[in-house]
Design a protein around this nucleic acid. Sequence first.
DNA 1: AGGCGCTTGTGAAGACGTGCACAAATCGCG
DNA 2: CGCGATTTGTGCACGTCTTCACAAGCGCCT
Lengths: 256, 256
Amino acid sequence: MSQHRHPGAPGSAGAVPALPDLPEATVARLPEYLRALHNLADTGHETVSSEGLATAAGVNSAKLRKDLSHLGSYGTRGVGYDVALLIEQIESVLGLTQRRAVALVGVGNLGHALAGYDGFASRGFRIAALFDADPGRVGEEINGLVVRHVDELPRVAAEESIAIGVIATPASAAQRVADQLVEVGVTSILNFAPCVLSVPEGVDVRKVDLAIELQILSFHEHRKASLTALPATGGSALTALPGGLAATDSQEAIGT
Amino acid sequence: MSQHRHPGAPGSAGAVPALPDLPEATVARLPEYLRALHNLADTGHETVSSEGLATAAGVNSAKLRKDLSHLGSYGTRGVGYDVALLIEQIESVLGLTQRRAVALVGVGNLGHALAGYDGFASRGFRIAALFDADPGRVGEEINGLVVRHVDELPRVAAEESIAIGVIATPASAAQRVADQLVEVGVTSILNFAPCVLSVPEGVDVRKVDLAIELQILSFHEHRKASLTALPATGGSALTALPGGLAATDSQEAIGT
DNA sequence: AGGCGCTTGTGAAGACGTGCACAAATCGCG
DNA sequence: CGCGATTTGTGCACGTCTTCACAAGCGCCT
């Protein structure tokens, strides 16, 4: 990712709570911890051990401790972590104390679903505006929001102080939309279009490509299939776990 | 990810083309190369250099060459790679020579969109069946497919020989659905529900969580905002790239 | 007060992934 | 045929991430 280097700068010790330049891999896992913590809080837990939280988040406990240690020491030895405090800390680090405004461009099949997805609202974001280039779609109301023409982006972006842009257009339109988003000052983009976006330095792009995920699964499926053809060491393919489900760490972050 | 170890096994040199146990990071990038290659093929290119393909795929050319070298030597020095041949090789490695059948469970907001997403069909997959637990949704027709009750999964899975399951249910239902998928023999799952799935060894799970992606972007947004508060070294925050867009490698894989 | 069990935080080692830089190979041209 | 231009494939060094293992710290019970 882009290489912002936070230079020593020990002078600015003030309101800003350090910003300790977390490893990217850690950042990618924090949201998962946060989700698990909210679950724990909802079920009445006040504290949780690294082991417990790690299991809930699907990672190794050593990794979790190291991740959290980067934020500072918010655990108590012999006891664990205070759930409420940890939630607060992680939300603070992720910048979720303010509810960021999201603009969604492209209200087709996928965009429609995203516009109606309540997981955004419940996890710190506010879909502030919907755009499409197709005049036939402009004016349509989705989930209480009216679809505007993409040309209105500059005006609306300023009014709503958009922080993040989501691109759910066809690939052919994505670069143009990205340019427009950058133009109006958006520096974070989530791209669902299957193409590479070219953006200026300082703008972060994350990409989600559903077909790619399936193709990665296909590879493993393919490999597993070719393995069963082997004589192999142990028993047959499905020794089927005794009790049924065994905890595995096969759950892997999609990011990084 | 799960630790299948391909043991030496030099005996089985037959129809199977080696299966060279690729690094996971490489596997995650192959689909991106494949997409770029198809673009190139469609625009009439017969060969492409590592530099050209790398740019099209948004990666470093050295990385691309190393990735491709893991598949074997399919390039010609001084010339580049044969586009058609490389497509063939990558599709073969990813197991895309057969069109895999996908079962989609959960036809809510997101599931609806996924069912209608044509990117699946065009990239090697066939949505073979739709399921939902809500009787109110059963019978609905989406994109030519009728939604069935999830209890019919065993029968349909056998009929259609489902290879991959996609979970687009609420988090509360996801584990149950995963269990059912595993039960009928599915060993690859793409999970859109915001929760950790527990599955037996040998089953691969990939997770896509839209809110997590936004939260990661939020972190960087937060950090960028706190950086502008610094006096800093050079000029002001936005020296704004001269021409406008500069190629960056900030495009980062969402996987791995 | 003291000791015991539990849990965090972290040093160190190893695995993994990345990128440079260059030798080896191929093509085209004179 | 030989030479130079071009591009691949890869050895090597570096940085990042993961995992182990354990000392340090905390609370509770006697």
